[in-house]
Design a protein around this nucleic acid. Structure first.
Lengths: 148, 148
DNA sequence: CTGATAATGAAAATCATTTTCAATAAGGAA
DNA sequence: TTCCTTATTGAAAATGATTTTCATTATCAG
């Protein structure tokens, strides 16, 4: 369970960032932010839509897509890539660049730091590429799912 | 440019693996294998379809999807994930677990090895996850595209 | 060569995402 | 507060990617 304080903190931060970037804070948009902040699992646009309708009875799926687009652009959410699907999102948490996904239940954990400096140099040298970014994700089983 | 010998080697290997797994080797399927083996860029199902039609005039897109599905399952191709699209594929090359993508032209390079053992242990400990797998992908500019 | 059946391609169905558009509401200015 | 500009909204239609269906064809084991 995510603590209430952390949910609130995320929502408030997201609202400031959206405002700073000239976006208006609307009721449907707030519903989308809440659903994402409250979820400890990676969540798809349709999931957000369904859960958002419990808050705003006539929320549109289009609004979910449009809000996600802006949030992704501002780094407020991260897209979670998996073999079968790449359309789930999680809250982006400051200072945590990478995520860890439970293959069974979809629960997400975050971690920061990596040890890829020397590998990056070696690969750049070997391939003549200029390496600008990397993408690292771990897969496994969360504490709960290990028991099954 | 990929050397002819390497293309042939890949195709032959793929055909054996497909046969070993009980799949039939058909003319349309061979066209798909060829297109993938000949491409040094990540290539989408529709690209494969278009280029395959130069070999087999009435190749079906469905066959491309079905062939890719089997190849992915057998590890003969890898799916390339990028921010905007996750539907491109590259030849899986033995012993090269990871890829490097040119953000400009889509050219692919391979590398092997990583240095993630201690990171994996640290993250497992911190999160209580049992880590079973990881994905690592580098992004950058290939030699050609650095000149632009 | 033959027969069982896997594989084929066209068309239709499905599912995710984007575009269009007229109506509404956010929030800065008065 | 009230007004006004304009970003945002949701429904519906359009688009794009992928999957299913199905009757026909072709592979390959025997």
């Amino acid at each position: 369970m995510i603590e209430q304080s952390r949910i609130q903190k995320n929502i408030e931060r997201w609202i400031s960032v959206l405002k700073e970037n000239g976006y208006r804070i609307t009721t449907p948009r707030k519903a989308v932010l809440e659903v994402i902040a409250e979820s400890e699992y990676a969540i798809t646009p349709v999931d957000i839509f369904d859960q958002g309708r419990n808050k705003i009875e006539n929320l549109g799926l289009v609004t979910v897509y449009r809000t996600l687009e802006k949030m992704e652009e501002l780094g407020l959410v991260l897209r979670v890539h998996q073999t079968e699907n790449c359309q789930a999102f999680v809250a982006g948490v400051d200072g945590h660049e990478h995520i860890l996904i439970c293959e069974n239940c979809g629960r997400i954990a975050y971690f920061e730091g990596d040890e890829l400096e020397s590998l990056t140099k070696r690969v750049a040298k070997e391939t003549d590429f200029l390496i600008k970014d990397h993408w690292l994700q771990f897969f496994g089983l969360c504490k709960e799912c290990q028991k099954l």
